[in-house]
Design a protein around this nucleic acid. Structure first.
Lengths: 379, 379
DNA sequence: ATTCCGCGCTAAACCGGTTTGCTAAACCGG
DNA sequence: CCGGTTTAGCAAACCGGTTTAGCGCGGAAT
């Protein structure tokens, strides 16, 4: 810790200082048994006193592997980390990675360019989540022969993919609402990222199909204004319900494509003076951790988020390690979890008409019963 | 995309195939202007057809920089990613990193060893969060001269540190409860990771000090059983309140050291048949995003989590880039946000005694009013 | 016609480690 | 005392790129 010069010491510096060869220094760190014990000690002492730390990059170069897994997402990290869905997914990937001693490196657009991010990524394999097939960037990786697993993507033919039965889940959600007598139903979809075209085969598209199928089975068709999209955030969900209400629609049930938005819907409902589920039933999607702790606990479509991440992680690790060179795609199940945010449609609220029609006559401006303590910081 | 052999092609392969030197290939990728346009095109075409992707590791080696920021945590990633606090913090770091075109690499124990993880970490600088000074691993980095910023750590003397005024925040929280007339107060602390000794100067210690100071100022001392610790999760919070109740304690106010746990307390309270805030006031800490959407919205101590991450990120980036070689530590403010989970102590609940004493006489077994629909999946 | 310049490209050195193959000395049993 | 094995350590090649210095050449300036 003594003579620290300007530059960081390299292996040659340690070698010179200790009066040995580079090889000896390398051995002192990696295979001490190949050195006389006291030599090894001496070298390490010198190294410590110089503040020497073997350069990991150089090391990885000779080893031709980084033991790092990439998690690729088309969204900015600064926008995604507090999304509970992404958090849980990452947990799953991390679990798989940790078991094999792999680190995690997040790959997301650098200065807006995913390509540039991919070029820099020092990883042995990649789990891509929410990347559409259109994103040509994926080709880059595939062609380069880097082990790659896609999650929640409109499947590329010959790429291992992990998905979830979104359509069946959505179908069950809608069925549930129908069984409770709801006919006036609002669907809240996930807004596709600006610049990205909506993907009929993407997650959103599949869920929409599930909803529609169930609704159509009951002879119901969504009317204009009864399908809204919003960013998948709490605020997005709140805005969606508020907007709908302001437009004069009065659904008795809401199908929301993500729990995060559903929580916003719950909140907005309370602020509109609606009781859930007495006045409004809400069904989410994902079953993130907090959903069982919302008020009321959220009825939602469960998907095994962590397992999805873990499975993807294991798959790509298997590819990296050479076992299982052509791994199959995996499709995981979803299932409806009925909690307390859904209930039978209220007597008074029942309408004769089977569709959710705009009822402009009874349109109200502003909130019927705005909560006076609206959650704004007061201090 | 044609003749793919077993191995991934190297720059030499492309050079040979295109009939040029390695240099030319390198230029084709990095400085095309130094080549005749058609040569550049030809080289890139050959490269594409071979599926060539320049090895990022080799590239970083010559550039002697990885343009990657490390986020160091002593906890396993698989346990931390769905912690909203960590998510928000990471968002902040990511924001700073993205602006400078840096990627993020998470450094956490590999096979239980943080040291090993640090050895592998190919980063230009590190933001360490929640790492105690005792963790000798930090020395490794400091000695190696790697830019390093500590967050929420018992400050090492000569290391730039970002912290938050935990003590003042906790003090304000306790004062608030006292002002509302609460005298029987429960404190829920964060359980230190097993194996780690509790740190009096750590975040938990500072918050505890703030609470105690306020309480002491009102002549109140916590009694045995009125200070419990739990893992900082929703379940941890639920368990803490339940356990307390089962022990026969009947606090009217709870000071919780994290919002995540506070959400658990809220939930457990409801299951115990307690109304919040009528029967029980709850104050959290952190002000994570969902806290304004809980039921009721949570009174809590706000700390600028994202800003903390962003500041730490900027600081370490400044160090990496050579500007600001000896950056100062930063202390950010906390402030109490009063929402709806706190209220005046109820008439009936008021006790004469000023301390939270175990009232074993009225001990109840089981839950007074167990919620029949206890949030378990029913489908 | 010579000089000079810039273009287009290359050979070789370099980044900071690891690994291979080898040598010299020490050891060892017969 | 000898041949053979082990031990300790070294020089050089290598990982896969980037970068520096420089070379041959054609055209413009002198």
């Amino acid at each position: 810790m003594e003579e620290r010069t300007g530059r960081r010491p390299r292996i040659a510096d340690v070698a010179r200082e200790a009066g040995v060869s580079k090889t000896a220094v390398s051995f002192a760190f990696n295979r001490p048994s190949r050195l006389a014990p006291e030599t090894a000690i001496r070298i390490r002492t010198v190294a410590d006193s110089l503040g020497y730390r073997p350069d990991p990059v150089a090391r990885m170069l000779t080893q031709r592997s980084t033991r790092t897994l990439g998690v690729l997402t088309p969204q900015a990290l600064s926008v995604i980390f507090s999304n509970p869905f992404f958090g849980a997914f990452s947990e799953g990937v991390a679990l798989a990675a940790e078991q094999e001693g792999f680190a995690l490196d997040f790959i997301s657009p650098l200065h807006g360019s995913l390509t540039r991010a991919i070029e820099r990524a020092m990883v042995d394999g990649v789990v891509a989540i929410g990347v559409s097939a259109q994103h040509g960037e994926v080709e880059q990786l595939r062609v380069a022969g880097l082990p790659l697993v896609m999650v929640d993507s409109s499947a590329l033919p010959d790429l291992p993919t992990i998905e979830v039965d979104d359509e069946a889940g959505a179908f069950a959600a809608a069925q549930h609402l129908l069984a409770l007598g709801h006919r006036d139903i609002l669907v809240v979809g996930i807004e596709s990222t600006p610049g990205t075209p909506p993907e009929p085969d993407g997650v959103g598209g599949r869920r929409a199909r599930g909803y529609r199928k169930a609704l159509a089975g009951a002879g119901i068709e969504l009317m204009r204004g009864a399908y809204v999209v919003a960013p998948s955030t709490i605020e997005g969900g709140m805005a969606a319900l508020r907007r709908t209400w302001e437009d004069g629609l009065r659904p008795t049930g809401v199908l929301v494509m993500s729990d995060v938005m559903a929580i916003g819907v719950l909140r907005a409902a309370r602020e509109l003076g609606l009781r859930v589920p007495a006045d409004l039933s809400v069904v989410g999607f994902d079953d993130i951790d907090i959903s069982q702790h919302t008020h009321p606990p959220l009825t939602t479509v469960h998907q095994p988020i962590r397992l999805k991440g873990e499975t993807a992680g294991r798959l790509v690790l298997a590819m990296i390690e050479g076992r299982d060179p052509r791994p199959a795609s995996v499709r995981l199940d979803t299932r409806l979890i009925i909690r307390e945010s859904t209930g039978p449609v209220a007597r008074s609220a029942k309408r004769t008409d089977a569709t959710c029609r705009p009822v402009r006559l009874q349109r109200t401006s502003g909130h019927p019963n705005p909560n006076p303590r609206g959650g704004q910081p007061t201090a």
